[in-house]
């Protein structure tokens, strides 16, 4: 008979975490740290490059996933953009 209470909840997550972190590091290290000069931020200023591009959309998404999944929060903070004065 199958156990009714589910166990095994923690199984694959730690290796997955490390794998993803390592992958990300690799990707980032392939791309040397060279912050742009003020006049070089044209690409970063594009709306498609922003983190808080469409507020209503991100609110809706958060709400939808909150209703279906256990995890919530951490959808990031704003920032980015042209850094104009």
């Amino acid at each position: 008979m199958k156990p009714i209470l589910s166990v095994n909840n923690y199984l694959p997550n730690r290796p997955v975490l490390y794998g993803l972190a390592a992958g990300l590091m690799l990707l980032l290290s392939g791309c040397a740290f060279n912050p742009p000069a003020p006049w070089e931020r044209g690409d970063l200023a594009k709306s498609s490059m922003r983190f808080d591009n469409d507020k209503l959309d991100s609110l809706a998404q958060k709400h939808t996933y909150f209703s279906k999944e256990a995890a919530s929060g951490g959808s990031g903070v704003g920032g980015g953009g042209c850094g104009c004065n």
């Binding site: 000069a37 104009c84 004065n85």
Partner: peptide
């Protein structure tokens, strides 16, 4: 802008 060492946009 490099020669002027521009620090912000606009300057």
């Amino acid at each position: 802008p490099k020669r002027f060492a521009v620090k912000a946009m606009p300057s």
